[in-house]
Amino acid sequence: MFLIVGGVWLWTTKPWIPAIELAEPGPSGQRINQPGLIGNFYAGQGSDRRPAILILGGSEGGLAAGVDSQAQLLARRGFAVLAIAYYRLPDQPAKLELVPIETITRGLDWLKAQDAVDPERLAMMGTSKGAEAALLVASRRPDVRAVVAAAPSHVVWQGFDWNLAPVEGSSWSVGGKPVPFLPITDVGWDGDVYTPALANLHKHPEAIIPAERITGPVLLLCGEADSLWPSCTMARAARDRRNAEGSAAATTVLAYKDAGHFGVGPPLAEGREAPWIITLFGGTKEGNLAARKDGWPRTIAFLEAALKQPTTKETRQ
């Protein structure tokens, strides 16, 4: 009887499903709510047109407070930043299946059109599924000058539904058609289902993201102890493909030994107790905290270098 009641409670409450957030913009921010585009925009500071960054969160969907917080931190460093939602909000897909990448490209086009933005200095930044999307979109957008992909994937994956309903299609679509994807071959509760699926990648080479087409430098951050998916294996695969295909721009992998899936992003404030969730998908508390403390300033330095003011020669090209 206890097991039955417990099972009913689990299925009714579904505690594994992350809450859908639509974070309020901070004091310097602006809510963008247009057909096909929901996000928070931060124009940054300065009188000149500024480099701009589009930020994507992960499989939690919506517009999470943590994603908005990253946008605010970057805006304080002089970037114009747009953080957008691509699924789980009204008029968006409820599950991560056939999510139109046009939602993301629409955000890029909107960002480039703002008076505060220098449209020739555009970057993308994403985490987890957002990193997968950032690499995919940037490989199709030569105007994206740099990419930061945290806990990334080098392939397009089969979609999923937080309600555990069957999903057989791709995570992403273009023009209403599915982007070729790598199927997940093992479904269960007992850990990483992505590593076994990668063994079949040779049967689905079309699922590989052509990262070599990204015109600018790429920074990939990952935790070696990531238990959600093999982000370091996939980060190195993206780097190796770019190098093998003769990409002219640099590709950097920052891999942290004792960090997991949540070992990426801004460091926690000094003296603040680390939330329990930081070790949910691998790594030690100390390892995840150290990785974030090291990786975030290096992310800022990467973006500042990649989006520096173009020289006269670069502008004429």
Rank of each mutant, 00 (worst) to 15 (best):
215 T>N: 15
140 R>W: 09
176 G>R: 09
221 L>D: 01
225 A>E: 03
24 E>T: 01
235 A>G: 08
172 W>N: 05
110 W>L: 10
247 S>D: 12
287 G>N: 08
7 G>R: 05
21 E>D: 10
129 K>E: 12
109 D>C: 08
133 A>K: 01
232 C>P: 12
90 P>A: 06
309 Q>I: 08
9 W>L: 13
222 C>M: 05
153 S>V: 03
195 T>M: 13
191 G>K: 05
244 A>C: 09
126 G>S: 04
182 L>H: 09
97 E>W: 02
134 A>C: 08
141 R>M: 10
258 D>N: 06
1 M>K: 13
37 L>N: 09
67 V>W: 00
226 D>L: 00
188 G>Y: 01
26 G>E: 08
59 S>L: 07
139 S>W: 04
317 Q>T: 15
161 D>W: 00
304 E>F: 02
29 G>F: 03
215 T>S: 15
277 I>D: 15
266 P>D: 02
274 A>G: 08
101 I>M: 14
261 H>A: 03
145 R>W: 05
43 A>F: 11
212 E>Y: 00
296 W>V: 02
183 P>A: 03
63 L>Y: 04
253 V>P: 07
298 R>C: 02
247 S>E: 08
44 G>T: 02
21 E>C: 09
86 Y>H: 10
176 G>W: 04
45 Q>A: 14
1 M>G: 15
272 R>M: 13
84 I>D: 15
199 A>T: 12
77 R>K: 14
15 P>V: 01
245 E>W: 01
68 D>K: 04
302 F>Q: 03
174 V>K: 15
179 V>T: 09
24 E>Q: 12
181 F>Y: 11
66 G>R: 07
303 L>N: 05
230 P>I: 00
90 P>R: 07
56 L>S: 04
15 P>D: 11
